Amino acid sequence: MSGFEHVLLERADGIGTITLNRPDKLNAFAARMPREVAEAVQELAEASDVRVIVVSGAGRAFCAGADIEYMERLVEANDVEAARALIDAGGEIVTTIRNTPKPVIASVNGPAAGGGANLALACDIRLASDRATIGQTFNRIGLHPDWGGTYFLPRLVGPSRALELIYTAEMVDAAEALRLGLFNRVVPHDRLAAETSALAATLAAKPPIALALAKRAVYESGDRTLPEMLDRELEHQLRCFASDDVREGLQAFLGKRPPVFRGR
């Protein structure tokens, strides 16, 4: 366990879990908390014993974005450097999530607003409680989306729907977020932890090389041509073909036993 004030960090069975831990403030970001999250994400991204990363929130919220009282103090003091540090930390967090070869799951247990929404959108997969809500609430207090919202949101829902969500700043309920593609799956609130653990365990048992290369290819495909992606698939497939994991997968299939992939 790392010594963070507002972040809980756990590792077990190949799964690293980051829990935003400021439940009395709906896990809203203030002061050093974004930096702690950035350090926690980086730690798990580099950890050799972690194959899957899970991000969730303590209490009844995932993350309410920036702490309003903290933001008011920054505005009153005209503390541009502290505001820049908050935004820069968010950029570092979402960039690390996107660049790590490991699958990253957001377990959205409640409201995800502003930067908290975009933290969830940065993750590869979003499992949500039926009590969860999500929204680009920035302009309610006169602000512009940050933490990658203008990048992730239109890629998920298209530019027109993204602008509608940004313009209205409405919180979308779980059913609508699922329909829009903001959430991958919605489950009963009391099943979220178990469903998240089951998915994380499933992914942790998968071949790490194949998953890492697939993540890279899918995210690269947005600005590539079909011929370029076919070349990338050939490159990645041959890398997998040469791995010990392929031999293990084939032998396990033929031997009618579960494979044990070691990422080699």
Rank of each mutant, 00 (worst) to 15 (best):
Y70W: 08
Q136W: 06
A242M: 12
A12Y: 03
F29Y: 13
A112E: 09
L254N: 12
P208D: 01
L20H: 13
R35Q: 15
L226V: 15
R155V: 13
M1H: 02
A45C: 05
R185G: 01
Q237I: 13
V108S: 05
V41Q: 11
L74A: 01
L211S: 00
A198P: 00
R32P: 00
T137V: 11
I125R: 09
E176Y: 09
G90M: 02
A45I: 05
A28Q: 15
L203Q: 03
A89R: 03
L165Q: 10
L211T: 02
A212K: 10
K206D: 13
A45W: 07
G110K: 05
A177V: 14
R126W: 03
N139P: 00
V80T: 06
G115T: 10
T137C: 02
E170L: 15
S243T: 15
L192D: 15
K215P: 05
E81R: 10
N139I: 12
G91A: 01
R51Q: 09
T168L: 09
R191S: 15
V108P: 10
L26S: 12
I18W: 01
N118V: 11
P208R: 05
P258Y: 00
A38F: 04
F183V: 07
M71E: 07
L230R: 13
A217H: 04
Q136E: 15
D67G: 03
R185M: 08
Y151E: 12
N27I: 12
P23N: 04
R11K: 11
F29W: 08
F241D: 14
L165H: 09
G263I: 00
S197F: 14
V108F: 02
A117E: 10
L182P: 14
A30W: 05
M229T: 03
V94Q: 00
C63H: 09
E5H: 11
A198S: 14
G181N: 08
T168P: 06
K215W: 05
F29E: 00
G59M: 09
A214N: 12
R161G: 02
G65N: 07
A85M: 02
G14A: 06
H6I: 04
A12W: 00
F241M: 11
L165P: 04
A77H: 01
A217G: 08
L153M: 03
A45D: 01
R179H: 15
